[in-house]
């Protein structure tokens, strides 16, 4: 816990940190402004957080914001740092972090595909990764209706009887 606190103090002294929480021992979540992300990530990488374990997105539809989450890991002291930042939902543009962590390439493609967040400076992120020939709104947005899409695209099997005596009523 001491090392965690010293990291927090270090970060707070150097950067503009909005909030810090500790979900678990050896883990901490740090909220920063979207303009600070790149400097914080570069700094973390120089002090040993060499591994980008995960990069993902969250849709906060009521607050009209997207959240981008980076999890970096230090193999020397075993601490996970979860870096979070908020983007405007109407114009979700973010600068690529592939210059800092080249492995973020596929995460950025994934997030672009599923949330529609654009990564400036990474032309590869516009390519299809999982969804081929997708023509709808990005599917992980909360206002996307998967059931309607599924019923439209993939016709369902029609059952003559919707009643199985042993089980009772289904559907």
């Amino acid at each position: 816990m001491n090392s965690m606190n010293s990291i927090v103090d270090d970060l707070k002294g150097k950067f503009d940190i909005i909030n810090v929480v500790f979900p678990d021992d050896m883990q901490m979540a740090v909220d920063v402004d979207k303009n600070d992300v790149h400097t914080v990530l570069s700094y973390l990488k120089t002090i040993g957080y060499k591994q980008l374990s995960l990069m993902s997105g969250v849709d906060w539809i009521k607050e009209n914001e997207f959240e981008v989450v980076f999890i970096v890991f230090n193999w020397d002291n075993g601490i996970h740092i979860l870096l979070r930042t908020r983007l405007d939902r109407e114009n979700p543009v973010f600068r690529t972090i592939t210059g800092i962590y080249p492995g973020a390439q596929y995460y950025e493609r994934d997030i672009h595909e599923f949330f529609g967040i654009e990564f400036e400076g990474n032309p590869m992120s516009y390519k299809d990764l999982f969804l081929e020939l997708w023509d709808e709104m990005p599917p992980m947005r909360k206002d996307f209706d998967p059931l309607a899409y599924s019923q439209d695209k993939f016709p369902e099997r029609k059952y003559e009887s919707q009643f199985i005596p042993e089980v009772g009523v289904i559907k």
Partner: peptide, 19 residues
């Protein structure tokens, strides 16, 4: 493959293979 199973409302998986 029969009717979509627990993925009946997924945007990515088909619901009827014999189609």
């Amino acid at each position: 493959t029969l009717n979509g199973g627990i993925y009946f409302d997924s945007y990515a998986t088909m619901t009827r293979l014999d189609h």
